[in-house]
Design a protein around this nucleic acid. Structure first.
Lengths: 209, 209
DNA sequence: TAGTATATACCTCATTTGAGTGATACTACT
DNA sequence: AGTAGTATCACTCAAATGAGGTATATACTA
């Protein structure tokens, strides 16, 4: 049986072209196409499509909200974002909302079919630039020295981010209590924070360490 | 000019087959193949290949260390992991070390060429299972209620993870100082931690919120 | 209706922490 | 030889925090 695809795209011309293209391809059928995702929850719940191609910039609810609605209505439906946006913010919001793939609209239409097959196969089709951005998030670490932390300070900060108290840190590293406090004071200065809690938040959010 | 590929793989049979296969393919040439990556730094620095296929489990330095060495020697060289491992630990260690792709050895050899082209194109070729794991890391959030935090407690915890002091939190949320402390005490209990720093660390690491 | 969870608020006490100040020693570079 | 950075340790003081206990009002549930 053919793969059932749903389209959410507010550009009528594009939506109709895509619908025609996909519906006439071997092994695919378009189960519906919509110019907004205001009713995405009910639609998905009722139709339970295999794959959804989702634009981001639509009137009313955005595609980002759309993904969330779809995933709540039927988690088994795979959602591929299909958009012109490639800024980090929108990308990661979509991924966090549960998107299974992310294609830029400059993707040649023929590649769409590969992507749909890929996502049905448990994959995560992404345009090359997008995939690179995603992998880059794992590599944002070795920049501890953006703040010129000394090796010893890094050790201290690492233990701090485990929730250790100064006492625990200093005994772990075999230094005097006040030495640990000195290090922490210097760390706080370098990170431009005022207390340990801010330091932990900053260190973990920016993946220092 | 052909794409210059380097192989690091300790299984001699497999390495020779791969080398033969790739070297005889149109548009590819094997610039070297090695059974371990103990000298990966110097090799990469001297040869500066376009792409490296890297095994993980090798005698001496692991492929994970290998990636790091390669990336230090010549960041422009793309590294595709080629391994049987699909456990989260090894995967994320490789990605953090700078790997550009991650293929399981069950990948049909023909797909290797697609992957190499993909990575040369700025992409990040990954086996479907792997890609799913990577995307899943972005979706590990909405499980705040694993700890049965009440809505109000979640608000408090969110501000806490911004490094806010109790004073700031309570004034932000318009409640009495002691009310904030009560909430925090309950939050600490529910998260099984003893202090705010641990709570922040746990909340950020487990992406509660 | 009784019980449970939530949100609110207050009190006390001991500990932890941040800020300020100062000091010694070692290394590395100028 | 002098300077800068790092690592070490000490002392004080005021503020922030965690742990303990109590209390009230509301809302939902059994």
């Amino acid at each position: 049986m053919p793969i059932r695809v749903l389209l959410f795209e507010d550009n009528n011309k594009l939506r109709e072209s895509l619908s025609y293209l996909i519906d006439n391809a071997e092994g695919f059928t378009v189960a519906g196409d919509y110019s907004n995702c205001n009713d995405a929850f009910n639609i998905t719940r009722d139709i339970k499509p295999d794959v959804i191609l989702m634009d981001i910039d639509m009137p009313g609810h955005s595609g980002i909200e759309g993904v969330a609605m779809v995933k709540e209505a039927n988690p088994a439906t795979a959602v591929i974002m299909y958009t012109v946006f490639e800024d980090d913010d929108k990308l990661f919001q979509c991924l966090c909302a549960g998107a299974n793939g992310y294609l830029l609209k400059k993707t040649p239409p023929g590649k769409l079919f590969d992507a749909i097959h890929d996502v049905m196969n448990g994959g995560a089709p992404m345009s090359p630039n997008i995939a690179r951005k995603v992998l880059a998030t794992f590599q944002h670490k070795s920049q501890a020295n953006e703040y010129n932390l000394s090796p010893r300070e890094i050790e201290v900060l690492q233990l701090l981010t485990k929730g250790y108290s100064i006492k625990m840190i200093t005994s772990e590293l075999g230094m005097a209590f006040d030495t640990g406090r000195s290090h922490l004071k210097n760390i706080y200065q370098k990170l431009h924070v005022n207390c340990g809690k801010e330091a932990i938040a900053k260190a973990l959010k920016e993946r220092i360490l």
